[in-house]
Design a protein around this nucleic acid. Structure first.
Lengths: 150, 150
DNA sequence: TCTGAAATCAGAATGGT
DNA sequence: ACCATTCTGATTTCAGA
């Protein structure tokens, strides 16, 4: 992975619709070389895919929450519980962390009712859960997990 | 926004490289109609863009943190502080939340040294910050903020 | 691995309903 | 708004270096 690969990634992470010609022009290398390198990074798993960014607000997903989950200890508790949390509809992020809590869970719902029904009640009924504490997001100031290279 | 729009979004959120022909075949509607609808949703801001998903691990971004930031109160403190946090290199998410804390900050670094230097020292030197508490992510069980429709 | 050229295919534009 | 057709241009393939 060299300077050119990094520049290609930097472009594609912000706009996947950039054409081979445009990238080639900017990097001043032939477009077939750009194509070759992109294919290589796709093969190697450096580029994991391409997706559309859909505005959650357009789908009325205005009830955004970040929840801390403390687990009861036991064998494989964190694998089990992690998977269960990841499968809850509305949940897009599950992180196993060191510190006061065990899991940080990110989720989006239409409203408080949907959150209660689809998230809270489900989480509280999972036997491995000791307790949870949820914070409601008032404003998303930044959310660009696709930006990996600065 | 009807059933077809939703199905199109559902496809594109997981794979933006799906072709018009493929989508048309699956939904059993003409490809020019699919094109028309996608363009419409792009114009309306429902589809905000297309991004490559780059594997952070391939770039050795293994030091992943979730930080809670408590702010000193003052006029516009949360706008100011939010923007400052969002501008720190390595930070990809900043959420203003209700609850014990004021901000939840998501960031990725290569290692502990980089985290200390680029993140912690910067955050601790921001005057609006009262205190911070950081959790280190041991494992990402799920991270797919692009998945909006389940 | 890199590159130019040719071939293929996908997306944009058009115009009629 | 929908859709068939045409046209343009982007991506893939391939062969030589």
């Amino acid at each position: 992975m060299d300077e050119f690969d990094l520049k290609i990634l930097k472009i594609l992470q912000t706009d996947a619709k950039y054409s081979l010609d445009e990238i080639a022009r900017e990097l001043k290398i032939p477009k077939s070389t750009v194509a070759y390198r992109i294919k290589k990074m796709e093969r190697e798993g450096i580029i994991k895919g391409y997706y559309a960014h859909i505005d959650p607000a357009s789908l009325n997903l205005d009830y955004i929450i970040i929840s801390s989950v403390k687990a009861k200890y036991g064998k494989n508790y964190h694998v089990e519980l992690g998977n269960k949390l990841a499968q809850i509809p509305g949940v897009w992020g599950v992180y196993f962390v060191l510190g006061e809590n065990d899991f940080i869970v990110m989720a989006r719902y239409k409203n408080r009712e949907e959150f209660m029904e689809k998230f809270l009640e489900k989480v509280m009924s999972i036997p491995e859960v000791e307790r949870t504490s949820t914070q409601v997001v008032v404003k998303i100031i930044k959310e660009s997990p696709n930006i990996v290279i600065f």
